[in-house]
Amino acid sequence: MTLEPDGSEKLILIVDSWTPRPDGSGFDLRPGASQWACENDAIGELHRFLAARFGTPEPRAEQDAPLAEVIRKVQSGEADAGQLAQLAEALADAPNAAAVLAEHGALQVLLDGIQTAKQRDVIATLAEVVRNPDAKENEFQRILDESWWMFGGKYIEKAKRRSLTVLTQLDVPLIRADGALHVVELKRACIPDLVVKHREFFVVGPEVNKAVGQTLNYLREFDEQRDVIKNRLGIECRRAFATVVVGHPEHVPDAAARAQVADTLRTYNAHSRASR
């Protein structure tokens, strides 16, 4: 923009052009390039011509909006596996992708997004099997085979977990942060008598007691062989404990019993913890 002698302002657009190098490696940017200019109304005419010929580019903020929106969903845990694919497409389309990813923490966003999507897929698959009244324990085992994060702790290699004791085959053995063994025993989700009425109250049904008794025998066996297991595998069994995953309220046909599942199991769990 320049100032005219009469005090008015003049808008000038100056364009330089350079000749491409013969080898296709870029442009010859030495001084002496061709140059042309236009001013005031001619600039508007040029803009209208280019817009009609090539289309009007969207503002940068709008072009980056899809990328930023997908990143927001990833960060908030709303994104699924399909939206991660949208993130890849947005990376390809957004001209300011590097700046947007830098602002939002690119590496962490991508890692968190992939992990969250995988976890959501596992949870969805598990929920589908839980709703199936004919699903067996091995189906839950197959789903959770690589999803130990659902229980926390550190995963024990399969070769190790199958040789903890001679008689015991564990469903989900984990190692706590303090090095102690945490055993997860998986049972069916469809347990119609998950809780039963006993006098004026509800108590856990026979399948729950049977599963808990089974895990108590595991713990007794680990305690008896703790020195062997410690020396052979480096796993501490003296402070081992167990979690039983059994039943689901959806499969309890009696409405009154179904409404009492959570409270009954909570009372039973409190008793179990106090007895340790």
Rank of each mutant, 00 (worst) to 15 (best):
R131F: 01
R131Q: 13
R131M: 06
N132H: 05
N132L: 01
N132M: 02
P133G: 01
P133R: 04
P133H: 05
A135T: 10
K136H: 06
K136Y: 06
K136F: 06
E137W: 08
E139Y: 01
E139C: 03
F140H: 11
F140N: 09
Q141G: 09
R142M: 10
I143D: 11
I143Q: 09
I143F: 06
I143S: 06
I143Y: 07
L144K: 06
D145T: 15
D145E: 15
E146T: 13
E146C: 01
E146G: 04
S147T: 00
S147A: 15
W148A: 10
W148K: 12
W148M: 08
W148H: 14
W149Q: 02
W149V: 03
W149F: 12
W149I: 05
W149A: 06
M150P: 00
M150E: 01
F151G: 01
F151A: 07
K154R: 13
K154N: 13
K154D: 14
K154H: 15
K154W: 13
Y155Q: 15
Y155M: 10
I156N: 04
I156Q: 08
I156D: 00
E157M: 07
E157C: 05
E157S: 13
K158S: 12
A159L: 11
K160M: 08
K160I: 14
K160Y: 02
R161A: 04
R161E: 12
R161L: 04
R162P: 02
S163Q: 12
S163A: 10
L164G: 05
L164N: 03
L164C: 03
T165E: 13
T165I: 09
V166Q: 13
L167C: 07
L167R: 07
T168G: 10
Q169F: 07
Q169R: 15
L170P: 08
L170N: 12
D171R: 10
D171C: 05
D171S: 09
D171L: 05
V172N: 00
P173G: 05
I175Q: 10
I175V: 15
I175Y: 01
R176I: 02
R176Y: 01
A177V: 12
G179C: 03
G179Q: 03
A180H: 06
A180K: 01
A180G: 04
H182D: 04
V184K: 03
V184D: 04
E185C: 01
E185S: 07
L186P: 01
L186T: 03
K187S: 08
K187F: 00
K187Q: 10
K187T: 04
K187E: 15
